[in-house]
Design a binder for these strands. Structure first.
Lengths: 238, 238
DNA sequence: AGACGATCTTGACGATGTAAAGATGTCCCG
DNA sequence: CGGGACATCTTTACATCGTCAAGATCGTCT
């Protein structure tokens, strides 16, 4: 594995084309958006462009279609260009997931900043959580698909921690007990796990189509209503 | 795409080897288990053997390693052999998921058949649910990874329906209200969604390592204990 | 000016899913 | 008894993917 023969392409290549190289080629691809732009070259901001392209691919083709080569195509660069910026498919995916987490956190914070009782705030956050996941299912799947992510990446780790902190804060507010930095009481942990498990489980089941049977047996009831009823039933105990 | 040139391998092949064919080859592979077995040929029960091989691969290499070719290798047959039996990677995976669901149903039924209060039974079922998923994480991920499954396959559809029926029955027993065949009350549906979401969410978060932070902040508490505390808190409201 | 390093492209390799065509065994029907 | 029809399995081929290595191109610093 370490010392591969390699078919020695060097000699064969040097003979075929060494002095020709007709033109930079490039430009004339730009398959979406951007009006060709005169091929700014070396592109300047490929990293961000690749992330934007990756998000477009994810929204258009879903998680299955999110490949390194598809992202490179979408960005109009060669298939190996992403490697230099992200090293790996896992790298690109992880950075994209970090963006997703940051947006998610902002959305939840906005939803929780309404005025009302703690329970009303919790309901609003939960509803926004599910709504965001339904609006961007590929991104949500990506964020919670552990095996494709590299949690040691600083951006992803921070964004993920922030999401957890937001959740813990919301639960603490509802329980009216402060949360220490390094330790939790079992009751606090149980309440956090309960809230997160319930909402995350509901979301994944919904996205995977596992709740369509239930909704089909409830004429005239949509997912939001079911979520509300579920949360109301859950709130009674807390 | 429909009328591909095809490099016409027929002529080239006929010249190279048409009358030779040194032997059936085969045998001498059998990379795991079974002592060679004299190559029974046409194998007789390849379908089941492939499913068994697929499960071995899944347990050994996880969901990532579960490929058609890896399964064929594990079973000691050519890489295209599975196609004839399952048509597709989705096909094989779906049949394997059906097996997983059936085992799962049996385990949960066994766990729920202890004597005790309805709440105790529910706790036992939940604990068994998580224990099974932790014991076979690849299988659990497979079963709830919607995009890789074909839910229209009869075996998978039936097994999945049976799982849902078991859950609904358990919830009905705890609520002490009968469940009709075609319609549910919103309260029943909310309770089913709550139980399923909570336990499925907890399981996926646990398998994806998302709960390690919480557990790390709870010295001396393992996942089972956290699950128990969470369920106890949830039961109070029902 | 010229070297150097970062960025991007080209080409190649191994692995995968899938389709087509050939090989091999079974079985049924004359 | 023999021979085709069929199911099963193998071989071959192709497109695509991730990844690596080497070359090309550009900015920049000395």
């Amino acid at each position: 594995m370490s010392t591969r023969p390699r078919a020695t392409p060097t000699a064969a290549k040097a003979a075929s084309k060494s002095t020709i190289k007709p033109a930079p080629k490039r430009a004339g691809k730009q398959p979406a958006g951007k009006p060709a732009e005169d091929a700014p070259y070396h592109h300047g901001a490929l990293r961000d462009a690749l992330l934007a392209a990756a998000e477009r691919v994810l929204e258009r083709d879903g998680l299955e279609g999110l490949t390194l080569r598809a992202v490179a195509r979408e960005a109009g660069v060669s298939h190996a260009a992403p490697t230099h910026h992200f090293g790996d498919l896992t790298g690109l995916v992880s950075e994209l997931a970090a963006i997703g987490f940051r947006r998610f956190n902002a959305e939840l914070a906005a939803a929780g900043s309404i005025d009302g009782t703690a329970s009303e705030k919790a309901m609003a956050r939960a509803a926004r959580y599910v709504a965001c996941a339904r609006a961007h299912p590929g991104m949500y799947q990506l964020m919670f698909r552990g095996e494709r992510l590299d949690m040691t990446r600083p951006a992803l780790h921070e964004a993920s921690e922030a999401a957890f902190a937001g959740l813990a804060g919301a639960v603490a507010a509802r329980l009216q007990t402060p949360i220490a930095r390094e330790t939790l009481t079992l009751e606090q942990a149980a309440e956090i796990a309960r809230a997160w498990s319930m909402i995350h489980g509901f979301t994944t089941l919904l996205l995977d189509g596992r709740l369509t049977d239930i909704l089909h047996r409830l004429p005239g009831v949509d997912a939001e209503t079911l979520l509300g009823a579920m949360l109301k039933s859950a709130m009674r105990g807390a």
